[in-house]
Design a protein around this nucleic acid. Structure first.
Lengths: 140, 140
DNA sequence: CTCCGTGCAAAGATTTTGCAGGAAC
DNA sequence: GTTCCTGCAAAATCTTTGCACGGAG
């Protein structure tokens, strides 16, 4: 289904015209599977530091920006610090739990039908954020 | 239609359980009509400074947070610095122009039909952001 | 060999917090 | 008279930028 699913990090980087370095491979692996969570720059830095203690914060930021520019990651704002999502698939949206602060991927029904009647706007993408309580926080 | 429309700032503050001070009245007026734009803390500080040169940035931030907590303003994240929207009406959403960076209020069709089929999530509100080009940037 | 990526440090920007005086109620 | 708000300053985050070295291509 997804052509990237079987590609390893190094090839993926080359495919996107980025040089392959240990830091970039490590940062990319920090996301684990494409379904992995949404990570902040800080979490990534912490996670990769175990493997590469020298890794500078600035490099994490620079690299993440490169990845976003290349389309390898998706950036999500509005949650304090920026989060990065390995799941680039448009059509998936987010649920933000007001209880625990967690962020979940969701696929709402009817999302495709949402549109602007005003022809003055050229819509490129549509992002939907639901806020409320996740199952754990709702019962608690 | 809207009971607030005819209420003056002072009453409005009292209604929300907030003390009425010159600073708060000024900050609230900075938004002008309820349809006024989306302002950043910095823009508000600049705007009110003309009237109250003493006004501290910290006060602007504190006050805006109070207002949001009281439901008087709506906070919009994801555009660099936080923006504050006098239009609290849910059901109105936003269009973000990738050309000029402008933020516009929109009322998309079909928005009411968007929902999560997953019953585990208790949705409280739904926020939709469209990104693309506004009429000016599209023709340029 | 050339250029890009990295580390380091420093700067920038945004937002929050501690504290004492003063105003609102 | 209390309590909350304000101003000031300082701190805490988060993120970007300048520069010289070193590794990728």
């Amino acid at each position: 289904m997804n052509p990237e699913a079987t590609t390893n990090p190094a090839e993926r980087l080359r495919d996107y015209g980025l040089r392959v370095t240990a830091q970039r491979r490590a940062i990319l692996s920090a996301f684990g599977a494409p379904e992995a969570g949404h990570l902040s720059a800080d979490e990534i830095h912490a996670s990769v530091s175990a493997e590469l203690p020298e890794l500078a914060r600035a490099t994490v930021y620079n690299t993440l920006n490169e990845f976003v520019r290349a389309g390898l990651l998706r950036r999500i704002d509005g949650f304090g610090s920026a989060l990065f999502d390995r799941n680039v698939d448009l059509g998936h949206h987010h649920f933000h739990c007001l209880g625990c602060g967690g962020l979940f991927d969701v696929r709402p029904t009817g999302a495709a039908a949402v549109s602007l009647s005003d022809p003055g706007f050229e819509v490129e993408r549509t992002e939907i954020v639901f806020r409320g309580r996740c199952s754990e926080c709702a019962t608690a």
